[in-house]
């Protein structure tokens, strides 16, 4: 297991199915420690799970970073960064639609994750990899 904890940042190397459950479990704990209500911490855990599994399915290897985050206006939140050097997503708009899947899943991973978070950015280059950054603010 490759987990690196530095201050309030969690770095996960995703390369095995167990990394998916470890990252979501520890990410949820970080969210709870930061004072997120249980419902929000659950949503954060699900998003970590979705992003980590996407890495595993499409890129085989990648990293997920979960960290305490402070916005420019001082508000606090949690930031999830998922990054891989996999094949990339050829049609991003389509991938962000409910029900779109190339892996036989429910096709809710990206579009659903976006609904669960407050901010969601995705950058993907075919042949280069995919980077997803998502933020949920503490209310």
């Amino acid at each position: 297991m490759a987990t690196l904890k530095v201050s309030d940042q969690l770095h996960f190397q995703i390369q095995h199915v167990s990394d998916v459950s470890t990252s979501r479990r520890q990410g949820m704990q970080l969210a709870l420690d930061m004072g997120f209500p249980h419902a929000d911490a659950t949503k954060i855990a699900v998003v970590i799970s979705e992003l980590a599994r996407n890495i595993l399915i499409y890129a085989q290897v990648g990293t997920v970073i979960v960290m305490a985050h402070r916005g420019l206006d001082g508000k606090r939140g949690i930031k999830i960064i998922a990054d891989d050097n996999g094949p990339g997503i050829p049609n991003l708009d389509k991938a962000m639609t409910d029900g779109y899947t190339t892996s036989g899943g429910l096709g809710l991973g990206l579009s659903g994750s976006k609904r669960l978070m407050d901010e969601f950015y995705i950058h993907s280059e075919v042949g280069r990899g995919t980077n997803v950054t998502a933020i949920k603010w503490l209310r």
């Binding site: 201050s7 990054d83 990899g129």
Partner: peptide
């Protein structure tokens, strides 16, 4: 060019005792 590493980026601070 083309290399992106989220683990190391501008502005990142490392607490050396770690």
């Amino acid at each position: 060019p083309g290399r992106v590493s989220p683990s190391i980026s501008l502005g990142m601070r490392f607490y050396l005792p770690d």
